[in-house]
């Protein structure tokens, strides 16, 4: 807790307070923090515990349970490969393997230049688009292995642009 800067601590308190009326606010609080800060390290989990009264181990349990949440900073572009049943039978494993091979990282990791992270996702609910990939919210439908390099190149080109 001591490691958080004042602005971050104040913002986290604001997020916690905004759900004060909810009976079970934890997932919503963590989603907001994940979206805004990009990751939820233990210091932040402790801050959330202080503001909500929910124990640190319980918060940590939720953070490590859902693949949506991360304890490490994510890359600028977060590639989410759906490995739900429909995507899986449509060859999603080969798609994610291709992303991993080209970027040289494993699911859950971030490239050294901080540009890309890969997440293995449970069902996105977009089974008609199987195998589906999301990059920062944008959905790519029926992705083929030979399209992966092109998708990566597209974002490489954007590079550090906002």
């Amino acid at each position: 807790m001591a490691h958080l800067n004042d602005a971050a601590a104040a913002r986290i308190k604001e997020i916690c307070d905004s759900y004060a009326h909810e009976k079970t606010p934890l997932i919503m609080i963590l989603s907001d923090i994940q979206n805004e800060f990009g990751y939820i390290p233990v210091d932040v989990q402790e801050a959330v515990s202080d503001y909500t009264g929910i124990s640190v181990p319980e918060i940590h349990g939720v953070v490590t349970f859902y693949s949506l949440f991360s304890q490490e900073p994510k890359g600028k572009y977060v590639i989410g490969c759906c490995l739900g049943t429909a995507c899986y039978v449509k060859g999603a494993q080969k798609v994610i393997d291709q992303f991993c091979e080209i970027l040289g990282i494993q699911p859950g990791e971030t490239t050294e230049d901080g540009l890309f992270s890969i997440d293995a996702l449970r069902c996105l609910g977009a089974c008609a688009a199987a195998p589906a990939v999301t990059i920062n919210g944008k959905i790519y439908s029926r992705v083929k292995v030979n399209e992966v390099a092109g998708i990566i190149a597209e974002y490489r080109q954007k590079g550090g642009e906002a």
Binding site: S49, V56, P57, E58, G61, T64, Y66
Partner: peptide, 26 residues
């Protein structure tokens, strides 16, 4: 029991499914 005795709790479930273990954070 940890949460009762300790108040704030140290032990919790970590991870999901087959990888689940009980321990302090991380």
């Amino acid at each position: 029991r940890c949460e009762q005795a300790h108040g704030k709790g140290v032990l919790g479930f970590i991870n999901r499914g087959f990888d689940t273990i009980v321990g302090p954070v991380n």
